[in-house]
Structure formats: C-alpha cells, structure tokens
C-alpha cells in the first residue's frame, strides 16, 4: 500500500545481488540473486535460519561486506559513498559499548568522530538518552547497567547522528523475552516518532510480524529470498495485536516460507 502512495525513490535497492565468500573450504554463496526494494519509512525484517545471508545482506548495505555481482544502492549511492555520508546507524547483537567511556561518552563517540560541535554533542546526547528512556544514566559506565539498558544505549548511539537508515542485527537476540517485548514496543514508538527506515534481522517470527511493514523471508545454501510479505497490520500496534487473526495469518505465511526454503535442501 505504501509503495503505491509513495513515489519518492527507494532508500535501498538491490538488483541481481550476489555475494560469494572465498573460504578455506571453497566458495560459499552467501547471497544469490537478491532483488529487493526498501522505501523511505519502511520497517523491514529479515528472517531465516542461520546461514541464510540475512546478516550478510545487512552488512552489505552498510558497506561492511562487498557484493561480488549485481547492484546495490543506498539513497541512490553506492554503500561506500552512503557510509561516508553517514547514512546509517548500525546496532549489533551485542551492545558493543566501550567500557572506558560512560554511557554519555559512548553516545558521544560517533559525534566526536563526525566532528559535531561540543554544544551540539551535548544536546544530541541528552535528546537520544531521553528517546530510549535512559535519562539520568548518562554518567554510568556500561558495566554498571543491565543487558537491556546497554542495548538501549547502543540504539541511542546509533540514533545520535540522525542517520535516516537504522540497521539492526538481532539487537535483542541475547535478551530475555520480557525485556525483548518491551524493547520491541519501544522500537516501534521510536520508529513512529522518527520516521526512519529500519532494517531488522531476527530469528523470531512473532518479532518480525509484530514490528515490520515488510517481512523478507530467507533461506540458506545459497542465501536467497523465498518470500516478501507486505504486512497489512496498522502502524499503531499494541502488544495484544499478536493475538489477532491477521497477525496469526501473517505468522503462518512466514512459517510456510521458512519451511519452503528447507524443502529444497
């Protein structure tokens, strides 16, 4: 639906994308013939078993991996150019905060590297701390906070420099389900407030269905897309939407897509 309303150019576009790793055991086809269009403001989940290339694709968007073949553009540029323009914030599975810096210091780090003024840095740190509900924890060191709070700080860090694309690689994979539910809700709120384009890698079907406007189902050996589902769920999503008929139908379709990928093995 969004696609028809929105005529602005796609944020991320992959055409005939292939990525082959050369390993000691011979070449590994991590991504095969990927075609995907992500529009401004989309929340796109990538779901699939280990080795399906979901993380590799996210890394390719961030120019951390380089495709062997095909085209991949970010805001109409190559991923490398987009990286130099600071087009994205990246959130990894582990928070990856620097233990020698306070929470504020960690969030400030990308701003220092990008050369924001001191006053601007302070204002931005305050704003994103508030956004992830960590106000008052700025002076703590990472090891003094719980895993969930650390991960929220790493999201704040990715938000601090206002990249329009947020790439999240299983950001809540290491957290327990209660914390995870809460953070999922927060990510949705954040997305609604900031209007960012989000790429989100996950193992969890409910997580993918709950969060996304577009679900990309992938399967391994070689890593490829088996289904792309445009979610009919409304943008406003209370947690109990997960008991609705529509939700269960989409989850079912995702499960079918995952199973189809395995039948080819």
């Amino acid at each position: 639906m969004k696609d028809t309303l929105n005529s602005s150019p796609p944020v991320i576009e992959a055409r005939g994308l292939n990525l082959v790793f050369q390993t000691a055991d011979g070449p590994v086809h991590a991504l095969k013939d990927l075609n995907l269009t992500i529009n401004r403001g989309d929340f796109v989940s990538f779901i699939g078993p280990s080795g399906c290339g979901k993380t590799t694709f996210l890394r390719a968007i961030a120019a951390l991996e380089h495709p062997t073949d095909g085209t991949l553009t970010v805001n109409g540029m190559s991923p490398d150019e987009a990286r130099k323009k600071r087009a994205y914030g990246y959130v990894f599975q582990a928070a990856g905060l620097y233990p020698w810096r306070t929470i504020s210091g960690n969030i400030r780090l990308p701003l220092e590297i990008m050369g924001f003024s001191k006053a601007d840095q302070d204002a931005r740190v305050e704003r994103v701390l508030d956004l992830v509900e960590l106000s008052g924890f700025g002076k703590k060191f990472p090891w003094q906070l719980s895993g969930g709070m650390q991960q929220r700080a790493s999201i704040a860090r990715a938000l601090a420099f206002d990249a329009d694309i947020l790439l999240m690689d299983e950001p809540f994979g290491a957290l327990d389900e209660i914390v995870r539910d809460r953070l999922n809700e927060e990510v949705l709120k954040l997305w609604a407030r900031t209007g960012k384009t989000i790429g989100f890698v996950t193992h969890s079907i409910p997580e993918a269905v709950y969060l996304s406007t577009k679900i990309v189902v992938m399967s391994p050996r070689p890593g490829r897309i088996t289904d792309i589902i445009d979610s009919p769920l409304p943008k406003e999503r209370p947690l109990d939407i997960r008991d609705s008929r529509e939700f269960i139908e989409i989850a079912h379709r995702v499960r079918e897509g995952l199973r189809a990928g395995h039948l080819d093995d």
Binding site: R59, A62, A63, L64, R83, K84, R86, Y88, G89, Y90, F92, A94, G96, Y98, L109, P110, I113, M114, F161
Partner: peptide, 14 residues
C-alpha cells in the same frame, strides 16, 4: 579490540 567495535567505527566513517 573486537571486530564488532571496529565495524562500528567503520560505519561511522572513522
């Protein structure tokens, strides 16, 4: 330093 931390630096164009 961990690879992830170096990757982060790379995504910021450091």
């Amino acid at each position: 330093s961990e690879r992830m931390q170096r990757d982060l630096m790379a995504t910021w164009g450091a």
